[in-house]
């Protein structure tokens, strides 16, 4: 009886140790805070104004994104420059 108990205890011990110390695939999830950022035009330094769209610089024509925006969740097709 004592032998069986020891066997189970040893099994559980190593299982617990294994699951608590092993690396999870994709790594640990770090809690990141919300943050705000901006991307100015790398060519002329201008900011991106809302009514000029998201895809190109209104001043020098630099292409921020070479794509055609459609109606998504927050981004709409009106956001094409």
């Amino acid at each position: 009886m004592a032998e069986e108990k020891k066997r189970i205890q040893a099994y559980l011990e190593q299982l617990k140790n294994k699951v608590e110390t092993q690396e999870n695939y994709g790594g640990e999830i770090t809690n990141e805070e919300a943050r705000m950022d901006i991307r100015d035009c790398p060519e002329c330094g201008a900011g991106r104004a809302y009514h000029k769209g998201l895809t190109a610089c209104a001043y020098c024509g630099f292409v921020f994104m070479d794509t055609k925006l459609t109606d998504g969740v927050n981004i709409r097709k009106e956001n094409n420059s």
């Binding site: 991307r39 794509t67 969740v73």
Partner: peptide
């Protein structure tokens, strides 16, 4: 060729 907010919307939709 897109920025993260655009990718994340596509990745959601």
């Amino acid at each position: 060729g897109v920025e993260l907010p655009v990718w994340q919307e596509a990745n959601l939709l």
